[in-house]
């Protein structure tokens, strides 16, 4: 069975719930960039959202924007990837607990659990379908997307919502700073095009994809497949791409979305992957606009799908500053510390 990305919505450090970044992006400044918040009241009444943290409000808002009202309760699955869950709530509970183990408020604990995000979407959508949450570092979103494809292949899904959500607090940012995650200065597009030093910058994201088994006039593209590979050999990586292409009659990969983030070790691996898997393809970069998080690869898939829908890859998101018109096939590559890898193939429809 085929799978299509029928609609996508994002809230991030770019203009929320829009594709404004495609033609007119915001240029992030600072080492920790926070969500540009949409008007949450458009989707959530104050009574409903009063106990919700930012990550949850963003998840619900992008989910609302992505799935048409009449299809919400009928979703066969709600699949969520989140590296850290609602860490704002986790920290609130942890800090209170470290002051003393009595009289602790339950709301923060309840919201701290990773699957609160996906559960709340199900509760508000009144959706009894499959509900799953992945928290596997840099391939959390990819795991959710792969699981969705698997369920379509098993004919258990006709439609599904896949979310990739992560927020970054000041405190967690400081912790990651202790172990060298971030650059000591702003990251520029030049860093992402050609990294010479370690570290990246933090972004936040809630990306929602509405998947269907039939294309429609508004579909962004076909989602051919997502494969997860753990510490793969070059041979396995190559064989994996060849197999997906063969199965979907793809003879040429026009572009690859790569996760360059300005960290020299991270980016060197993408250079190697492109050489290995699609040396002639146009290379799409996006983390200079969106920053880094455990589920930023979800934005990567969304960026690739948007380019197919718009039939254009603008120069401001390519590694060599050259635009490409009318791309037909895009491969989205992701790796986390050269351990976890994912490969997603998108095809225009």
């Amino acid at each position: 069975m085929s799978v299509y990305i029928d609609k996508a919505a994002q809230i991030s450090i770019q203009q929320p719930l829009s594709n404004e970044w495609f033609s007119n992006p915001l240029l992030p400044t600072g080492r920790l960039c926070k969500f540009v918040r949409p008007d949450f009241k458009q989707y959530l009444s104050p009574a409903v959202s009063r106990r919700m943290g930012t990550a949850l409000k963003c998840t619900l808002s992008s989910a609302f924007a992505c799935v048409p009202e009449e299809k919400r309760s009928q979703l066969d699955g709600i699949l969520t990837g989140t590296g850290l869950g609602s860490i704002e709530n986790t920290e609130n509970f942890l800090l209170a607990m470290l002051q003393g183990e009595d009289g602790l408020s339950p709301s923060n604990f309840m919201q701290s659990t990773h699957n609160t995000l996906g559960s709340q979407v199900a509760i508000i959508f009144n959706c009894h379908g499959y509900n799953i949450t992945y928290a596997h570092r840099g391939t959390s979103f990819d795991s959710a997307l792969m699981n969705a494809v698997v369920k379509f292949r098993l004919n258990e899904f006709k439609s599904a919502l896949v979310n990739g959500v992560d927020e970054m607090t000041e405190k967690y940012f400081q912790l990651f700073d202790q172990i060298g995650y971030w650059k000591d200065r702003d990251v520029t597009i030049e860093d992402v095009r050609k990294a010479t030093s370690p570290g990246t910058f933090a972004g936040e994201n809630s990306v929602s994809l509405f998947l269907t088994d039939q294309p429609s006039d508004q579909s962004l593209c076909e989602l051919c497949d997502t494969q997860l590979l753990y510490r793969p050999s070059d041979q396995r990586l190559k064989a994996c791409v060849e197999k997906i292409c063969l199965e979907h009659n793809v003879s040429r990969i026009d572009a690859v979305v790569i996760g360059n983030n300005g960290d020299n070790i991270n980016d060197e691996e993408y250079r190697r992957l492109v050489q290995l898997l699609a040396p002639d393809a146009t290379q799409i970069i996006y983390k200079h606009l969106f920053g880094e998080s455990f589920t930023m690869s979800g934005i990567g898939v969304y960026v690739g799908a948007t380019c197919l829908k718009e039939k254009s890859i603008p120069s401001h998101i390519t590694i060599d500053n050259k635009a490409l018109e009318n791309p037909q096939t895009i491969l989205v590559l992701n790796h986390f510390k050269q351990l976890d890898y994912s490969i997603t193939l998108l095809k225009s429809c």
Partner: peptide, 17 residues
């Protein structure tokens, strides 16, 4: 006010604190 079981727990915390 349309409160639920978690609100009840919050009120218990309020009385304790």
């Amino acid at each position: 006010l349309g409160l639920d079981s978690i609100d009840a727990l919050e009120l218990i915390v309020l009385m304790e604190r």
